[in-house]
Design a protein around this nucleic acid. Sequence first.
DNA 1: TCAGGAAGAGGACATATGTCTAATAAAAAG
DNA 2: CTTTTTATTAGACATATGTCCTCTTCCTGA
Lengths: 188, 188
Amino acid sequence: MKSYFQSLNILSEEELHLLEGITSSKQIKKGSFLIQEGEVCKEVVFIRSGILRSFFTKPNGEEVTYCLTFGNNLMTALSSLIEEKPTHENIQALTDLELEVIKKSDLNKLVENNFRWMKVVKILVEQQYIELENRMLDLQRLDAKERYEKLINEREELVRYIPLKHLASFLNITPRHLSRLRADFQNV
Amino acid sequence: MKSYFQSLNILSEEELHLLEGITSSKQIKKGSFLIQEGEVCKEVVFIRSGILRSFFTKPNGEEVTYCLTFGNNLMTALSSLIEEKPTHENIQALTDLELEVIKKSDLNKLVENNFRWMKVVKILVEQQYIELENRMLDLQRLDAKERYEKLINEREELVRYIPLKHLASFLNITPRHLSRLRADFQNV
DNA sequence: TCAGGAAGAGGACATATGTCTAATAAAAAG
DNA sequence: CTTTTTATTAGACATATGTCCTCTTCCTGA
């Protein structure tokens, strides 16, 4: 995780060092949950290895995949972390995971007392915003087939490692329809 | 705008005062553009009065409304402002507008030299993230009818002031379909 | 090594939503 | 005011996507 923050080129060595006091490591098993809807998110994790999936549920109980995150990335239920309100997200391990965990309360102390840590967090939130905006644009201006093609071209790792039923809801379509699109795709 | 920032309860009177040096006012006419796609966004505006609409265009030229903002709010093409890349957004005046304008370069000086201004901007980005996430959730887990009903219940001001064709694309449906939903709605 | 369950493909059919068009109604322009 | 343009509604029909179901394949756990 240290090298992740280092690569933003904002923090000094001493500032990076502050991480060490507040980070703990954690292993979780495939299938288990980091957080479930209704809980308030109080930590950020860095994925050392493995894959996390965040999803929320429709009124009818159907799961909709919101976010898929691989190793070497941060993950949290951001809106709940910010607002300190119950989340809609369920964050589940798709594989066994090696994590580093930072509690919000510890991160807050860092951020509230250090200009550059404040800046780093601002930048991370900005990145999340941009990523979400891009997904929103795709959802609003591409049809299902175009979204699937874009996924293949730009996030090939998802197609390789994630079960299709999760990709389907990530693309906002049913597995049945994704199967149809894939069949089309063969014939072109 | 000053009272807008004041209400966040973070900045001191002197810090708020710094705004005055870097704010200019601007009137624009209904129908004119604040920014168009392809341009890099270099300013944030505060709407004193009037309504702004942001939209982007589909490959076929169709417009999709992304954001509708009323008086007493900030508006900008956020992702372009952050990344300093050409935007996909077109921001257009739906009415005559009274604006206060801050250039990014000036805001940056404030933010890079003042912890609490950095914090304020972080908070504003967080708010934008949360708003966008909520819209994303609605889009993914509600059907068109439910989205329209939610709009009526929670953003009644939009239904009152915004032409239906814009609301339709805001809800990610066609005007034809919105008209159908409205007809249904009468009969219930 | 095997049984049971999950995942994916795909047929048949249903439905939500889009397209195209015309008729009115409302708003803007002159 | 009158004319012209733009918004809104709605019919007829088309299409994208969903639902339900069955058949395989392939894991996974005992």
